[in-house]
Each structure stands twice: as C-alpha cells, then as structure tokens.
Simulated scan of single mutants.
Amino acid sequence: MRFACLTPFLFLALTACGTAGSRVAEEAQQKLVGMRTDDLQACAGIPTRTKQLEDGTELLSYEQKNGNIGGVNVTLPLVGGFNLAGSGSYCHALFRVAEGRVIGLNYTGDNDDRGGENGVCAPIVRGCLRQPVPARAPVPAPAVSMEPVGR
C-alpha cells in the first residue's frame, strides 16, 4: 500500500533527474547568443565543420556521438548470440555566426534523451555555460628600455 502511494513521486523524481541535459541545451540557445566566436571556440573547441552562407553568415557545426544505448546482449549455447540494442544517439549543434558573434543555435540529429528534447547536445555547450566571463587575451608586457644606468 505504501509503495503504491510513493510510485507517482518516484516517477516525478526520476523524470526531473533525466531532464538536466535538456535544460542545459535549452539554456544555451538563449545565453550563448551574442557570444564572440573566439570565446565560443575557447569553451566548445574547434568546430567539426564550417559553412559560409550566401547571406554573409557562417555555420559552425559541433558533433556529439554516443554509441548504442540500452538494450540487451543475449548469448545462447550452440546457437550463438545477438544484440537487442538501442540505436545510438547523436547531436549536431549548429551555431550561426555573423560579424564574429553567435546569432543563433539549433540542434539536429537523434538527440532526444529519456528526459527530454536535445539532451544529448548538452556536453557540447555545457562548458560554455560554465564560463561566466569571456576569455581574456594576455596583456602585453611593458616595453623595456635598454639605456645605460647612471648617466
């Protein structure tokens, strides 16, 4: 009886845990717009592919591929074995860039996880959300004068 009462709460708790990746991916679509391209590459890495578009904007593609997820591997004596596995998941995060800044972020691919949409894409953008300030260029050292001392 007690277990039956707790079942809905258990389901809600498991669902809430499963949506963390989806929240990260959605948050990135809002917070990374306006980020400088240099800063994007400093936190997400070098894009897998780039494409210059006719309107002067550019697409930067980042990819996340996961192997088979879930499933069962069965081995039977004399018959052999077989897999009943899930199909693997992947995400292409497409950053649209204009004048050195991100103007949009879209996700494509088999990128939904158990908790929600685009959850597989979270590892691509998570590092950029953790970087609260833009990457800073090193400050040049002051010029040193080589004049004799004591003149």
Rank of each mutant, 00 (worst) to 15 (best):
G34I: 03
R130V: 00
P140A: 11
G67Q: 09
N118W: 12
T48Q: 14
L78I: 06
C43N: 08
T57I: 06
G18D: 12
V139R: 14
H92N: 15
N106T: 10
L53W: 01
T57W: 00
D55S: 05
M35D: 01
S89Y: 15
T37A: 09
G150W: 10
L53R: 09
Q131F: 09
P142I: 01
L10S: 13
S89I: 13
A28F: 00
Y62W: 06
R130P: 01
P148C: 10
D110S: 11
R36G: 08
F82P: 01
D112I: 05
Y107M: 08
I69K: 08
R96M: 04
C5K: 12
A20P: 10
V97E: 00
G88H: 04
V120C: 09
Y107Q: 11
G104Q: 01
G56R: 08
D112Q: 05
L94D: 13
R2A: 14
V79D: 13
I103R: 01
K65C: 11
C128H: 00
R2M: 11
A143E: 15
G45W: 02
F11I: 14
S87C: 13
R101W: 07
D110W: 08
N73A: 07
G34N: 03
D112K: 07
G70A: 04
R130W: 04
L40F: 05
R23N: 12
L12M: 14
G150D: 11
I46V: 15
S22Q: 04
E58I: 00
G100F: 04
G88I: 03
G109A: 10
L84H: 10
N68M: 08
M146H: 15
C121S: 03
V79L: 12
R96D: 01
Q131S: 07
F95V: 06
L14Q: 13
N106P: 03
A137T: 15
G116Y: 00
G81P: 05
V125C: 01
P132Q: 14
